[in-house]
Computed example of a mutant assay.
Amino acid sequence: MTQADSDNTNAAAARHGFGVDVGGSGIKGGIVDLSTGDLVGDRYKIETPQPATPDAVARTVAEIVAHFDWTGPIGVTLPAVVTNGVARSAANIDKSWIDTDARALFAKAIGNENITVLNDADAAGVAEDKYGGGKGKDGVVVLLTFGTGIGSAVLHNGVLLPNTEFGHMEIGGKEAEHRAASSVKENEGLSYKEWAKEVSKVLETFEALLWPDIFIAGGGISRKSEKWIPHLTNRTPVVPATLLNTAGIVGAALAADNAVASAETDTSAGSVA
């Protein structure tokens, strides 16, 4: 086989997807190699418009997609509960998102009907489970993103239970994220050891309810996991997230690809029937 033949074979084997991660301060997107979870080239980022209304965000997402001349399926994350493509809450984006049909909105703005919309923490969880800290792990995997609040994603053998929102669970008289978000550490001037004590209380509550096989710790503070994970006292193993800033993009692209595969399976089943 010549080098050219080898390159063509590798290109044919590569399966690419596209994801856009909508955040409170920035919206970023990129092409993803779905066989590895790596970005193909650089991501493209634009500041989140203020106010972050549905129309303004949709225009920005469309601009990012156009930057890559992408015409295939697209996954988009939102910092919101999302059911059947409809935003049911709004965190760090305009409250007018609530009850907006996000899937239809993005489809119209982009000119592409193959749109999948999901919660941002769920996207990160899907990505970490397949390519990152949860890769090769069976059973119940729980991703927690520690930032301004606490995002959560729960998967069982690779299948997502969407929109868990465990950061709002009350633990010892406080919401989990008011007790153990990384913003609490900064605002209260806690040491890593002191903060880890609060994180342990949260994890112990979650593991008593879910009996996970592994926790994945995400968010910016996971970059310094060696300073606090060793201080945790809960029973379930905790590993740091590995995808970090690309998790949302990767998870969105994977979700869009899975949606297409599911639709094709349904169509095939219908044809057989």
Results as ranks from 00 to 15, higher is better:
G30P: 02
S200R: 09
S152V: 07
V140S: 00
K174C: 06
I221N: 02
Y44F: 14
G151N: 05
T164N: 00
W70Y: 10
R43S: 15
A196F: 04
G251V: 05
W228L: 09
W211S: 01
V65Y: 05
V65K: 07
T267C: 01
N119M: 13
I27M: 06
V239M: 11
A273N: 11
E188R: 14
V40M: 09
N187E: 09
N245P: 15
R15Q: 14
V154I: 14
V117D: 01
N10M: 10
G24H: 10
D33S: 15
A104D: 08
H16M: 10
R103H: 08
R179P: 01
G19E: 09
I93G: 05
S89M: 11
V142S: 03
P54N: 08
D266A: 15
V141R: 01
T9H: 08
P51M: 15
G220F: 07
D213S: 13
P212R: 00
V250L: 08
V20W: 04
G149Q: 06
E186R: 09
T233H: 07
A241C: 13
L209T: 01
A121D: 00
T71F: 08
D138W: 07
A4Y: 14
A107L: 10
G17V: 00
A104E: 12
A104Y: 00
A196L: 11
E194F: 08
V142E: 01
S183H: 07
I46K: 12
A91F: 13
H168Y: 15
T148C: 03
T100H: 04
G173D: 01
G85Q: 01
T60E: 02
E177N: 12
E170D: 07
I31P: 00
R43L: 05
G24N: 07
S89D: 04
Y131L: 09
W195M: 12
A241R: 05
A241S: 15
A104Q: 10
D7V: 14
E47P: 13
S182I: 03
Y131G: 06
G139R: 15
A261N: 09
G251N: 10
G167C: 12
L210H: 04
I221E: 01
R15E: 08
I171Y: 06
L254C: 10
T242C: 02
S183F: 01
A66I: 00
A273V: 11
S191Q: 05
Q3A: 12
V81R: 05
I229M: 13
L118Q: 09
G26H: 13
T71D: 11
R88N: 10
I115V: 15
G167E: 04
F206Q: 07
N187I: 02
L39F: 14
G133L: 02
Q50C: 04
F68W: 03
E188N: 14
M1T: 05
A124V: 03
D99R: 11
V260K: 15
T233F: 09
K174S: 14
A252I: 05
S183G: 01
A87K: 03
H67C: 00
S271R: 12
G151D: 09
A12C: 04
A62P: 02
T100W: 05
A66Y: 05
